[in-house]
Nucleic acid binder design. Structure first.
Length: 638
RNA sequence: GCCUACGUAGCUCAGUCGGUAGAGCACUUCCUUGGUAAGGAAGAGGCCACCGGUUCAAGUCCGGUCGUAGGCUCCA
């Protein structure tokens, strides 16, 4: 047989006998590579390691630690799990089992449900199957063969999937031991490649995500190419649990929930300090960026929601009430109310843009199954604003918003921002020319900005394109916070107008925008981001004065009063505990500054400073401390 | 709304086979007066989410309701 020339990613070449497969090539390079290999790209075509190569080709071995390789591993592990489930629960019917971010799942149609005990059994079976190291082989079938095969197996969901596959496509199935699954691949060459995995949980899931379909049983799991990778992932899950804002909220006594007002947070006095701190911060920026804050009603006649179109779309998610003959709706958003404020006066083009801000409380009747902590609530407020402007002002307004958003995120130490531009959906209202203008303006501005952005084609709202801003938190999780949405429809529906230079009536554009988004949600996200360690300016408990003994209680009281009248949130720990216990208590409560005062300090008029997580910083005169802390607060340093 | 799990003191949790409710922390009082992450003792604290059923007897078993969690679906 002839030799073929293989070119590697580093441009080096080697010759091999024709018909060799990539796994063998990997072995010839080194046992480590062969061990790590999960799939291959032959001439940029992503495929199985076991595919024979019979011509000169570019070969890139894909290992389990790359993103693509990890996905292969995840996907193969999903198959392994399906194999285990089929052997333990022969009545279960397989459906689909894809890889998702760092995890995989597989949905089964089964009469019973999976318990934790079942999960353990399935995982043990997977271990055994992996240990047996069955080779995983790809077969290509004709459409009718594939249909016949899966029909005979009674796998009706697979039959349905095959029926949906385009006639022209080849249909591939993968076999490992006696388990056969419809799949595009690629897959690892044998089950022994799958080593470091764990099943994470179960849930219900609708077939094809449609709530009218059968409820399937889903099992989630994860796999990594190394033990370390798996350990790290599980560790991160633990970390995330420790930082969970619901847990921190309880521990630090910031907010709570009561079953008599589900999904509606109660902020304690401490939580309210943080909440108001967020609002105050944004308010200061409203001064700088020329916003006018308004207060608008909580309850409107349903007529308003009918006119705005929300009634039709979202009435199921609105709190409504009938008072006598009249039906009212509790506002789920501010914008229709703001159009009433806008229309209250006649506007000249000279007045525009009008930037109308509102921290009004909003109520949305979120479905019982979706509510969660502070992230999905029924009662909330937003750092909401609507900008009424001329179409030709859109660019300028967006530019200013970019700057403002950057400033806000920086203040909260969100340093990684990604942006998504969502464009015109199929069902859209509004002038096509306006859409074009807006989309090209937004695109151009994003090109010019240094934001990393992607375009979500057709994902815009029906009333206009939008830009969503995502931040990465301390645990590298993405959160969508700010949103900027152009609206061509609401001005139309409420017949908004301004008098143009030529004296004619013109229609303004509305820009809906929020930077923190829902304050409740932001509270939760930020609480997890900082792990409860609030910066001094935001901290509900800034300073604790800790007397060493009650001999110095008078001096401690004096220090506390001084700080309090200087505007600090300070508390005195006058309990009969030892200093160590007081410090421990203050550290656990995440109080920023601990001031230890004993006889030495009382004599010298100083305080001994200890900062959270930093330990003893030595003693300084009280006045010096006050000045440096005031500076820190004014800078809003994080 | 759907699937699954859970709901016991302010918090974290134990409670065996159905037989009058338990711990640690926090709280109150007392002793201790101390120097950078837990000094000691005592006390108080409970409609075991709620409603119904089975039973001589229910925190425990069964049904329902409410709430919470992880998902599914939804998200102006």
């Amino acid at each position: 047989m002839n030799d073929i020339t293989i070119t590697f990613p580093d441009k080096s070449t080697r010759s091999f006998p024709a018909g060799i497969n990539s796994l063998q090539i990997a072995e010839s390079i080194g046992p480590r590579l062969a061990e790590a290999a999960v799939a291959v790209k032959i001439d940029d075509r992503f495929t199985d390691l076991t595919v024979p190569i019979d011509h000169d080709a570019k070969v890139e071995i894909v290992t389990g630690d790359s993103k693509e390789g990890h996905d292969v591993l995840l996907h193969s592990t999903a198959h392994l799990m399906a194999q285990a489930v089929k052997s333990l629960f022969p009545d279960a019917k397989v459906t689909i089992g894809p890889a998702i971010e760092n995890r995989f799942y597989y949905d089964f149609d089964i009469d019973s449900t999976f318990s934790d005990v079942d999960l353990g059994k399935i995982e043990a079976k997977m271990q055994a199957l992996a240990k047996s190291d069955y080779s995983i082989s790809r077969l290509e079938l004709k459409r009718n063969e594939a249909l016949k095969t899966f029909k005979e197996m009674g796998e009706e969901y697979k039959v349905e999937i095959i029926e949906a596959i385009d006639e022209s496509e080849t249909i591939s199935v993968y076999r490992q031991d006696d388990f056969l699954d419809l799949c595009r691949g690629p897959h690892v060459p044998s089950t022994g490649k799958i080593k470091y995995f764990k099943l994470l949980g179960t849930s219900g899931a609708y077939w094809r995500g449609d709530e009218n379909n059968t409820m399937l049983q889903r099992i989630y799991g994860t796999v990594f190419s190394s033990k370390k990778g798996l350990k790290e992932y599980l560790h991160n899950l633990e970390e995330a649990k420790k930082r969970d804002h619901r847990k921190l909220g309880k521990e630090l006594n910031l907010f709570f929930f009561h079953q008599l007002s589900p999904a509606s947070p109660f902020f304690t006095d401490w939580g309210t300090i943080v909440y108001n701190g967020l609002v105050d911060f944004i308010r200061e920026l409203y001064q700088k960026y020329d916003y006018k804050e308004v207060i608008s009603p909580q309850i409107f006649d349903m007529e308003l929601w009918k006119q705005s179109g929300h009634y039709e779309m979202f009435i199921d998610n609105m709190f409504s009430m009938k008072m006598g003959e009249r039906e009212f709706g509790l506002k789920p958003m501010n914008c229709p109310g703001h159009t009433l404020i806008y229309s209250h006066e006649l506007h000249s083009y000279r007045d525009l843009p009008i930037r109308m801000a509102d921290f009004g409380r909003l109520h949305r009747f979120e479905k019982a199954g979706v509510i969660s902590g502070l992230t999905r609530v029924r009662s909330m407020s937003q750092d909401d604003a609507h900008i009424f402007c001329m179409p030709e002002q859109i660019g300028e307004e967006i530019t200013i918003l970019f700057e403002m958003i950057r400033e806000v995120f920086k203040a909260f130490n969100f340093n990684e921002i990604t942006v998504a531009l969502s464009t015109k959906p199929e069902k859209a209202l509004g002038d096509a020319k306006l859409w074009d203008l807006a989309e090209s303006t937004l695109n151009e501005l994003l090109e010019k900005s240094d934001f990393n952005f992607t375009i979500d084609e057709g994902e815009g709202a029906f009333y206009g394109p939008k830009i969503d801003f995502n931040v990465k938190d301390a645990l590298k999780r993405d959160h969508q916070l700010a949103t900027v949405q152009l609206d061509f429809v609401l001005p139309e529906r409420f017949k908004l107008k301004y008098i143009a230079q030529d004296g004619s009536d013109k229609r303004p554009v509305m820009i809906h925008r929020a930077i923190l988004g829902s304050l409740e949600r932001f509270f939760g996200v930020y609480l997890e981001h900082c792990g409860g360690d609030f910066p001094l300016w935001l901290a509900p408990r800034q300073i604790a004065v800790l007397p060493v003994s009650d001999k110095v209680i008078d001096y401690a009281s004096h220090v506390t009063d001084e700080l309090s009248s200087s505007g600090f949130r300070v508390e005195l720990d006058g309990k009969a505990d030892k200093i160590g216990a007081k410090i421990r208590q203050a550290e656990l409560s995440k109080i920023n500054i601990m001031l230890i005062v004993g006889e030495k300090e009382a004599e010298a008029g100083t305080v001994s400073v200890r900062k959270r997580h930093q330990g003893d910083l030595g003693s300084i005169p009280l006045n010096d401390l006050i000045h440096s802390l005031q500076k820190e607060i004014n800078k809003r340093s994080s």
